[in-house]
Computed example of a mutant assay.
Amino acid sequence: MLELSILGFLAEQPLHGYELKERIRALSGHVRPVSDGALYPAIKRLVAAGLLTERVEEGASAAPRRVLSLTGEGRAELERRLRSPKPVEISDQVRFNTVLAFLRHLPDRREQAAVLRRRLDFLEEPSSFFYEGDRPVAAEDAGDLFRQGMLRVARATGRAEREWLREAVAVLEGDG
């Protein structure tokens, strides 16, 4: 998801490393913070693969800044990753939010809708944080005030997300 975030933010405008790190931090929040030890090697891999370019600019103080830009190959890679997210990028809420943050960069509305449909299909399957055998435990059956709370909040969030996904798919497919 780090590489997707790098490609996505650079599709919007060239940025230097610190600006990029701050945007990624804001997107992923405290749940999955990005360290310099992860960010800068990822940037180097993307530059080496021809997906990004670097240029040096004078800094506000004495130190020059390296400004990163997306190449044509980088844009194509971003679109490929958005068009075909991995299953975990559909099922994991934080990862899906990263896909969602940049889905507008996929130019084909039908392809955007297909990604949203995959998430909707995933959310339509009964699931829970807790199971009795193969059966998902509902909030009413949790038997614990705190687990009931987790399950009620998840149910309400899931309901709201499914409603939005249906509306968005209808708009993208020209039905709404």
Rank of each mutant, 00 (worst) to 15 (best):
R23N: 14
L7F: 00
K21E: 11
L145H: 12
G149K: 14
H16L: 01
T98I: 09
G17E: 06
E167S: 09
T98Y: 05
Q148C: 12
E89H: 00
M1W: 00
F102C: 00
H30C: 00
L100C: 01
G133Q: 06
Y18K: 09
H30Y: 02
P85M: 01
R66D: 04
R66F: 03
G72H: 12
R45A: 05
V115N: 03
V169F: 00
D144N: 15
D121C: 11
V94P: 03
R147T: 13
S69A: 15
D121W: 02
P14W: 08
P87I: 07
V34G: 01
E3I: 01
G176H: 02
E12L: 10
G149V: 12
Y18E: 14
Q93L: 07
M150L: 13
R80Y: 01
R135I: 13
L145D: 12
G72E: 14
P87G: 09
R155V: 06
L120Q: 13
D134L: 07
A11K: 04
F129Y: 06
E79Q: 15
L106N: 07
A38G: 14
L116N: 06
L78R: 07
D121T: 14
Q13V: 13
A42V: 04
I43Q: 00
A48K: 14
R117D: 14
V153H: 10
L39G: 06
A49I: 03
S61R: 15
G176Q: 03
P14S: 13
S5I: 02
S5C: 14
L172N: 06
Y18F: 12
F122P: 07
V171D: 08
A114Q: 11
E22G: 03
F146L: 13
A142Y: 07
Q148M: 15
R159C: 08
S35Y: 05
E132T: 10
A160M: 11
E161Q: 13
G74C: 02
A60F: 11
P136F: 02
L4Y: 01
L2P: 03
R147E: 10
V34F: 07
E140H: 08
A138S: 14
A142G: 09
G143A: 02
L27I: 07
L15K: 15
V34Q: 01
R117F: 05
S127G: 08
E12K: 15
Y131H: 13
A48N: 15
E132I: 12
M150Q: 08
D134H: 05
Q13C: 13
E3N: 01
D92V: 12
A26R: 15
D92M: 04
A48D: 15
E19L: 06
V88I: 13
M150T: 06
A42G: 02
L7V: 05
L20C: 09
A168Q: 06
S5N: 10
L27H: 05
V56R: 09
A154K: 01
A160K: 12
Q112C: 00
I43T: 07
G143L: 02
T98D: 03
A76K: 11
Q13A: 15
V171C: 01
G176K: 02
V34H: 02
S28Y: 08
S91G: 13
F9Y: 10
R81I: 09
R104L: 06
M150A: 04
E173A: 01
D141G: 10
R23C: 12
G37S: 09
R147F: 11
Q112W: 11
A168N: 03
R75W: 00
V47Q: 13
A42M: 05
A11T: 04
F96P: 15
A38I: 09
V34S: 03
